[in-house]
Design a protein around this nucleic acid. Structure first.
Length: 946
RNA sequence: GCGGGAGUGGUGUAACGGCAGCCACGCCAGACUUAGGAUCUGGUGCCUUCGGGCGUGGGGGUUCGAGUCCCCCCUCCCGCACCA
């Protein structure tokens, strides 16, 4: 083996040395335009900025596998490329460190979660350093740092001190609401005042309650997802479709509790429409659209024995086909509408076997509250329900419709009540069949219609009264007509509803941000003033919330902080002298810290403000009219498609409304990196065997000589197919690992892992090394006095062009292919003792620098450059080398390639045709035939159509 | 069920509507080697009577020309899932 070959050992030596030097020299320190971190800004003042960001990791302590760094490497390559290409690049990294795993570990070991969390952070930081990523270390922080969560709490107080003005479609300070209420220019929003008295007649506490009900962060007594097994409540987003906790897979129950909520629903429309202005993948936008779930339709009121029943429907056109109403079991009108007794001729299917409607309703409600979603599914979604013993009146035709409660109607969506149209709705049809209810068709089904609910298009039938007829109309006209009639008669109005619910923000955990809230003597919540932030997490003996049996639906939350009694009661002077207050003992959910971390990177040590507005404008502000602003490239996993990304957008919009940021959106361009899967193998007993020890022979897979079956799946311990970055770095060095990982496909694409294929990347780096360094002597072997020949100039410039294209589109595989082509050209054209011209060798080193930065630094340094290649200029392709003087033109006859001819690159169509006809083979094929048409595309081809 | 995305050699992939398969893995052959799971060179879609023919999931269409655009179908992946 030659003494100076680029082996794994040499690569590792080079890599560690350069990582030390980068750190010592602050190579990746990014200057801000102003403030504490602005040293050196003159150097980059004329550059465009680029903010490149990863979804920061949760330091779980579980081992990394090769899939985890994929996104980090993608942003690193991009950020290095952009820096070389003349941008002022911000590429920071931090840690999302509050959360359940550390707390659970703490519960088991009794060790403070901060201790394990900080150890895990140190471990990840070391791994990131070994990957050679170019983060600005001065900007690193963790969400658990008091200097960080102080501002998380501060944002909470801003949300608490704000309300959403629907007329202006934006958040405003709560003081402005109070002023308008006092002035009488505004009335409390519907549902915020249950006293029924005018504002002026309310006392202090009543007024506060009305105001509190307007806040963006508000307390609400409502059914929440209570998870006894975890001892905490969960947001809707944290509950799976089958009614279990996403973490831990425990049953979840609906239970009314007073909890903090975030009024994200106020922003539903803006969150939806602003998606159109973002550079995100369509699939991701679609997931958000589905989650927000806008439907347009109508609210319709049906007169009843008590208050009118208001339903929401997207099909008001089918109103004449409504044959019954259904309320959700938890609907507030259920009690008042329930009749005292069944009529004599009651259908036995409608009573649930109970003696009175009251008993039937009580039994059904109890059953519905206890049953988890999972149980409902297990029953095959059979429609169940009971009749309230009462009827309501269809406003359009006076029909008396029986009113049921049934769990197929959900409390939280629309009005929690529906008009059932079994003729045109599958679910209603199923219920009608089970309960023997009539079916009235109002849409003409096609002749071959098999029966059941018809949900397709068609003309309206059976839909007229004395004043209005929908018959013969299509769906859209019918909706417009009937809605107009309903509005005119005061029976309803057109409306829009969303699936999106307000965000449940309280958690009964220890390891989270404490709320900056205290309660006064009247039990009213008061924001802790800015000067008293952060509210530090107190030390406790026991980190666990009280948990209960998985299925104990009647249990109630007991947060760990409630046991810190000397902390929960506090005497503060909030302006009217020292008073005793009670602290909020819930903590914030895991998502809080990740809602705004993009802002804190701009200067994590700023203890004066959340973010300096000038820095925010520079790094995140809009670039043109109509631009949302935001991070220029945000890369992370698709698993955060709705939760984190929706919450972060919501907070950012609130901060925008309140004037703290100039950007309307946090993340202008977002890319989900693919995930890495790998083969796994099972033996004849079906057990997984270590994938690393399986060999392939003649198409058979063998483990210890015995055949095994190949499977394919996500990398993980259970499949015994984990490959770690450490193993790869040990075997090849990190540059090879980087190049291999980036060469397997576009960043957003999932891909299989194949360790042995990494040798291809190692060979490439070895060949690049040999272009510059003599393997035997170690001497630099480039030629200073030789001009490249034309072929080499063409190869170089084509490579530059292709690499730029690949870098810009995050298709690093394409960039690497072009680098490989250039390298292969050079190793052949300059084989033996002929050194490569310096300009070409340097060009190659610059091209590969974002991908294999340590190798590039070493070669760049050996080529005589004292300063880091990270700040060298990325090459530009010279246009003249991208076009040949003569080009090979394809000659087709009837679309089939029959010959190639060489013509000058600028030959026009006539010259092309002449050259083609001059070709012997083509002349032979055209001889005696009639050419009906000639297609000649200069620079491309000639096609003779016979 | 509804919505979305994707199907190209043995494998990962590449191809402004213009020569399908760049680049790499693997495989085959060779070179250098005491040796090679190192390195280097060449070959490698399928069929072939060696003329050529056929090939981008299947079927149609638009076009001088389709992997690429349109329609139908199949398969796989992802999201949502009683949302009125």
């Amino acid at each position: 083996m030659p003494a100076h070959r680029y082996t794994a050992a040499l690569a590792q030596q080079i890599e560690l040395a350069w990582q030390d030097r980068w750190e010592a020299e602050g190579t990746f320190h990014t200057p801000n335009p102003t403030g504490r971190l602005s040293a050196g800004f003159e150097r980059v003042a004329d550059r465009p900025k680029a903010f490149v960001m990863d979804m920061f990791p949760y330091p779980s302590g579980a081992g990394l596998h090769v899939g985890h760094p994929l996104g980090y490497l993608g942003t690193d390559v991009t950020s290095r490329f952009l820096r070389m290409d003349g941008h002022n690049v911000l590429h920071p990294m931090g840690y999302d460190a509050f959360g359940l795993p550390a707390e659970q570990y703490a519960v088991q070991t009794g060790q403070h979660p901060r201790v394990t969390t900080e150890a895990n952070i140190a471990a990840i930081a070391a791994q990131l350093r070994r990957l050679g990523v170019d983060h600005d270390q001065r900007r690193t922080f963790a969400t658990i740092d008091p200097g960080y969560y102080r501002w998380t709490q501060w944002i909470f107080t801003r949300l608490f001190e704000a309300w959403f003005d629907p007329e202006q479609d934006r958040a405003r300070p709560i003081a402005e609401l109070v002023a308008e209420l006092d002035a009488g220019t505004r009335s409390p929003a519907p549902g915020t005042d249950d006293s029924g008295l005018p504002w002026a007649e309310l006392d202090r506490v009543q007024r506060r309650r009305v105001v509190d009900a307007h806040r963006l962060a508000y307390l609400n007594q409502a059914p929440v997802n209570w998870c006894p097994g975890l001892g905490t409540v969960l947001s809707n987003e944290e509950v799976t479709a089958d009614g279990r906790s996403e973490r831990g897979n425990f049953p979840v129950f609906r239970r009314p509790l007073t909890q903090w909520m975030m009024r994200i629903t106020a922003y539903a429309e803006r969150l939806l429409t602003d998606l159109d202005r973002l550079d995100w993948s369509e699939s991701l936008k679609l997931m958000q659209r589905n989650w927000i779930g806008r439907s347009t339709g109508a609210r319709i009121r049906f007169a009843s024995s008590g208050e009118p029943v208001e339903v929401f429907t997207t099909r008001p056109d089918t109103l004449f086909g409504a044959t019954y109403l259904v309320l959700a079991p938890e609907h507030p009108l259920v009690g008042s509408l329930t009749a005292a007794a069944w009529p004599a001729d009651v259908d036995p299917r409608w009573t649930g076997g109970a003696a009175t409607p009251g008993e039937a309703v009580a039994a059904y409600q109890r059953q519905a509250s206890r049953r988890s979603e999972l149980d409902r599914q297990a029953e095959g979604r059979e429609k169940t329900g009971v009749w309230l013993g009462t009827t309501a009146v269809n406003p359009v035709n006076g029909a008396r419709l029986p009113v049921f409660i049934a769990d197929y109607v959900l409390t939280g969506y629309g009005t929690g009540a529906i008009m059932a149209v079994p003729g045109e709705d599958t679910r209603d049809f199923e219920f009608a069949e089970a309960f023997g209810l009539p079916v009235v068709r109002t849409v003409q089904p096609p002749a071959d219609f098999a029966g059941g609910a018809y949900t397709g298009p068609g003309s309206m039938i059976n839909s007229s009264n004395e004043e209005i007829s929908l018959d013969g109309l299509g769906k859209a006209e019918a909706i417009a007509a009937v809605t107009g009639w309903l509005v005119a008669h005061g029976h309803g109005e057109a409306t829009t509803t969303y699936k999106l619910r307000d965000w449940l923000f309280s958690r009964q955990r220890y390891w989270g941000e404490p709320f900056p809230i205290v309660y006064d003597a009247d039990d009213l919540p008061v924001a802790v003033p800015e000067s008293m932030l952060p509210v530090l997490l107190p030390e406790v003996d026991d980190y666990s919330p009280t948990t209960f049996a998985d299925d104990d639906a009647t249990s109630a939350p007991e947060p760990p902080l409630s046991r810190a009694t000397e902390w929960t009661t506090v005497t503060l002077d909030l302006g009217d002298g020292p008073q005793q207050y009670r602290r909020e003992t819930n903590t914030m959910p895991n998502w809080a810290g990740s809602c705004w971390y993009h802002l804190r990177y701009l200067d994590p040590a700023d203890d004066e403000q959340l973010v300096d507005p000038e820095l925010e404008r520079y790094w995140l502000g809009p670039r043109s009219a109509g631009d949302t602003g935001g991070v220029d490239l945000y890369v992370g996993g698709v698993e955060h498609a709705v939760l984190h990304l929706l919450y972060a957008r919501f907070w950012h919009k609130v901060l925008f409304d309140l004037g703290y940021v100039s950007s309307e959106e946090p993340f202008r361009r977002l890319v989900n990196q693919g995930y890495i899967s790998a083969f796994a193998y099972t033996d004849d007993r079906g057990f997984h065997v270590p994938a690393a020890d399986v060999v392939e022979r003649d198409g058979q897979y063998l483990y210890e000589g015995r055949p095994v079956t190949r499977e394919y799946g996500k990398m993980g311990k259970s499949l015994k197919n984990v490959v770690t970055p450490d193993e790869m770095i040990e075997a090849y060095g990190v540059d090879t690992f980087r190049v291999y990982e980036m060469s397997t496909g576009p960043l957003d694409q999932s891909r299989p892992w194949e360790t042995k294929a990494a040798v291809g990347s190692q060979r490439l780096l070895q060949r690049i090394w040999r272009v510059v360094v003599d393997e035997v002597t170690g001497a630099v072997r480039v030629a200073d006095d030789v001009q490249p020949d034309d072929d080499t100039s063409r190869a170089l410039n084509r490579a530059v062009d292709g690499v730029r294209e690949g870098m810009g589109s995050l298709r690093f595989n394409v960039a690497i292919a072009r680098i490989t082509e250039l390298t292969n050209h050079l190793t052949q054209a300059y084989a033996g003792e002929r050194p490569v011209p310096r300009a070409v060798a340097e060009g190659l080193v610059l091209l590969v620098a974002p991908l294999a930065p340590h190798l590039a630094e070493e070669l760049w340094s050996r080529l005589g450059h004292p300063e880091s290649v990270a700040w060298a200029s990325f090459p530009h392709a010279e246009q003249r080398w991208l076009v040949d003087d003569t080009v090979q033109i394809v000659v087709q006859v009837n679309g089939k390639v029959r010959a190639q001819v060489a013509v000058p690159a600028d030959a026009d169509a006539a010259a092309l045709e002449a050259a083609a006809r001059a070709d012997e083979r083509i002349a032979g094929l055209l001889d005696g035939a009639t050419v009906r048409r000639v297609v000649a595309v200069p620079g491309r081809l000639v096609n003779f159509v016979l």
